[in-house]
């Protein structure tokens, strides 16, 4: 069996509603092999994002992890202290959020915000950091890095902002990138470009990617394997082609019919 970068076992996350609590992620098992792209698909409200946020422990305060473990490089992330978690977050695990409009702070320049990650996680000096940021902006396919560095978030279009956010997420060369609906708000032409970028990063930087999306089309063209989720449970996992060709679960079938 190929080595796994992350292994989630029996993860249960619940939300408190008055006296009762409800499981929104229910005994989920999911593992991501090194160097692979895994698609986590499901309808809205199925618990996809909650899994992503659980991995980097950024859950909203109303949500509680009730049990299970998340093994990253052999250690259980759920037992880590907050300060230790901060070293992992952004350095070893990067995250790209759905809404590129709100993910950046509007009062700082794009370059400064990408630089922030390097300032926090590395010991590079100012000049080296700047060079690295310019390189990153170039890697994600934005033209004229010097200009982008000086730009504020509102100067960039949605697709450009999404790229800048990916640049920020891969700045410290993480092992794993969690991408939560990275293309759902973008035009199809831009979407295709972002998908190609992910593929490139996967090859060039040996980056594993957990792609969270409801779009089976994106998954079928990008992911090595796929996990289908509904009502907090993963109902089917497997190689992308196999799942797409002969789905075993009823919900997967419904989802495929809609695509």
């Amino acid at each position: 069996m190929e080595p796994k970068i992350i292994k989630i076992q029996n993860l249960t996350v619940s939300v408190k509603q008055g006296e009762q609590s409800k499981n929104i992620v229910d005994k989920v098992r999911l593992s991501i092999a090194e160097n692979s792209i895994v698609g986590l698909v499901g309808g809205s409200g199925s618990g996809k994002t909650t899994i992503g946020l659980s991995i980097i422990r950024l859950l909203a305060s109303a949500l509680k992890i009730d049990g299970g473990e998340i093994l990253f490089e052999g250690y259980n992330l759920l037992t880590y202290s907050e300060s230790k978690m901060r070293e992992i977050r952004g350095k070893k695990i990067g995250m790209v959020f759905q809404e590129p409009l709100y993910a950046f702070n509007p009062v700082f320049r794009i370059g400064e915000q990408i630089d922030e990650v390097l300032r926090f996680h590395t010991r590079l000096d100012v000049n080296k950091r700047k060079a690295k940021v310019l390189e990153l902006i170039d890697i994600v396919g934005l033209y004229n890095p010097n200009k982008i560095y000086q730009n504020y978030p509102h100067h960039l279009s949605g697709g450009m902002r999404q790229r800048a956010m990916i640049a920020q997420a891969i700045a410290t060369e993480p092992k794993l990138l969690i991408a939560d609906e990275p293309t759902s708000n973008l035009d199809v032409t831009i979407q295709a470009k972002i998908i190609e970028l992910f593929r490139e990063l996967n090859k060039k930087l040996n980056l594993s990617i957990l792609l969270i999306t409801h779009d089976l089309g994106v998954v079928s063209h990008l992911c090595d394997s796929i996990a289908v989720m509904t009502n907090g449970k993963i109902v089917e996992t497997g190689k992308t082609e196999e799942v797409m060709k002969s789905p075993k679960d009823k919900y997967t079938e419904t989802l495929l019919n809609c695509y």
């Binding site: 199809v188 032409t189 979407q191 295709a192 470009k193 998908i195 190609e196 089309g217 994106v218 063209h221 990008l222």
Partner: peptide, 12 residues
């Protein structure tokens, strides 16, 4: 053509 390549084959 570009639009179709992107929408159908997810290729830019």
């Amino acid at each position: 053509k570009e639009l179709l390549a992107a929408a159908v084959e997810y290729r830019s």
